[in-house]
Design a protein around this nucleic acid. Structure first.
Lengths: 168, 168
DNA sequence: AGCAGATAATAGGATGTCCACATAGTAGGC
DNA sequence: GCCTACTATGTGGACATCCTATTATCTGCT
């Protein structure tokens, strides 16, 4: 997950210095923001996947499972899943393939549209999703290494960003 | 990149509602923060890779190239690259394989440690890195769709987070 | 000296993401 | 009614990331 020894300096600050030194000062802050988000995501994903490993889940499959768990019928069309999770249709196919091999999800034909396929969560899927959530809540979500104010600020800023990017 | 129609609601707010409704209120904010960062990264990466496509680069390879460009000698040991970019050694091997096939980087033996290999940026590599930076600065970094205050706040919060995670 | 443990890089395998294509099936305009 | 355009999925391929295990080589300790 983590790569050994901490660096003796912040690599992003260092990059910002380089940007400024090369006459790109105008773009330095944006570069720092972009790089920060990339790195934060990497840290968070590693942490989450680490907790999910014992359930033989990854964050991608966990999210899919939770989406189905929260759905009224326990099932959703593949395309709807892709839309909600904002991932490529082929990523949904691949995740459902694996979840289905694990017995956590089942493919069933769409009742009215013969092109369509529904992904339906199985009882085993409900069980593992619930257990994995308990673990994640306890180990990561309840204490994400950020103060409540930082969390609120982060979520607000990124919400605006996502909105502008066309998520919702 | 983007998945068609915007949703009629914010999926992260919706997840927070579900968390609260299921008695997981204590973890709801952390869940929202984690999910927000994941999604933001996805949006940003898509934007960046989109700009880099015409240079036949990805963000991962671009970062590696910039690291070498900024280095004194234009070369660094593979292990040092992994440390600085915080990626797994095998990811460095793979990125250098591709960059080297593209002629942007060259592998040379470490002068004193016979186990080691240096990745050295080539003239073509310097050129493409510079051109790609100009493009990214203009199209993404100089205007990342966030206000200067939001950028500053974001970078600060994530800097503290990265520090606590052991990056530096 | 010499051996045990650490370090550098790579190979091979799993997962996830995207893209370009291909295949069905649906739906609206004439 | 029918044809064209769009929608839903899936296949195969490119990348990136991580993990485990392997091969060399170095370093420190006895």
């Amino acid at each position: 997950m983590s790569y050994p020894k901490p660096l003796p300096f912040d690599p992003i600050e260092e990059a910002r210095r380089q940007w400024t030194a090369h006459g790109w000062a105008q773009a330095a802050d944006g570069m720092a923001a972009v790089t920060s988000v990339m790195r934060a995501q990497q840290i968070i994903l590693a942490r989450v996947d680490d907790e999910l490993r014992s359930f033989e889940l990854t964050f991608a499959r966990y999210e899919l499972l939770m989406l189905l768990l929260f759905s009224q019928a326990g099932s959703l069309p593949m395309s709807k899943v892709g839309n909600r999770l904002q991932v490529h249709p082929t990523s949904v196919t691949s995740a459902v393939d694996r979840l289905s091999a694990q017995g956590f999800v089942r493919r069933i034909p769409h009742p009215t549209d013969r092109r369509g396929t529904l992904a339906e969560i199985t009882p085993a899927g409900r069980e593992v999703a619930t257990a994995a959530t308990a673990r994640l809540n306890e180990s990561v979500f309840a204490n994400p290494d950020l103060s409540p104010e930082q969390i609120a600020s982060l979520v607000d800023i990124l919400k605006e960003f996502r909105g502008r990017a066309g998520d919702f």
